[in-house]
């Protein structure tokens, strides 16, 4: 295979509107995404970045496609680790699909490069962040280990 890709699917008992909001609203992302928030105008072609609480930029890219409450595609490059940054831009796709009283959220993170270290690195983070997002929307509480940016990182 000439690419690296992970596909995550989770079913969350919520509405597409609430889930969409939770994906981009800083008051939500800070709770389940390790204290980070994203800065963007959220329109096609706009710059996009993930901010660490201390003001550093963790990742950045552009909004490639945006269809509120349905689909978001971002180009995504790590800005912290030189070896990961050197791999260039990956692509993250979020798809939301109402199914009964739940929303099926599919997250695809991929890069047109075999054996990407960056895709390998994010594959360790996504399950925790997405489980925490589900927990936050369904129970009102995110998972404890995702509430703050890890010390020393």
């Amino acid at each position: 295979m000439a690419d690296s890709r992970f596909v995550y699917v989770t079913y969350i008992r919520t509405t597409p509107q609430k889930l969409w909001n939770a994906l981009i609203d800083p008051t939500f992302t800070r709770q389940y995404w390790c204290g980070t928030h994203q800065e963007s105008e959220w329109k096609s072609g706009a710059e996009w970045k993930i901010m660490i609480p201390d003001g550093r930029v963790a990742d950045s890219g552009k909004v490639l496609e945006i269809e509120p409450e349905r689909r978001l595609v971002l180009s995504w490059r790590n800005e912290k680790k030189p070896d990961l940054r050197a791999e260039g831009y990956s692509r993250a796709t979020f798809e939301l699909e109402q199914q009964g009283d739940s929303v099926k959220l599919t997250v695809i993170h991929e890069m047109d490069k075999a054996g990407s270290k960056f895709i390998d690195a994010v594959s360790n983070g996504w399950p925790l962040i997405l489980s925490s997002l589900k927990s936050l929307l369904e129970t009102g509480e995110s998972l404890v280990e995702t509430r703050e940016w890890p010390k020393g990182m």
Binding site: V7, Y8, V9, P127, L128, S131, K134
Partner: peptide, 12 residues
Amino acid sequence: YLNPLPIHEIAE
């Protein structure tokens, strides 16, 4: 693709 999320949810 392996989707590890259900296993993660069981772990939690």
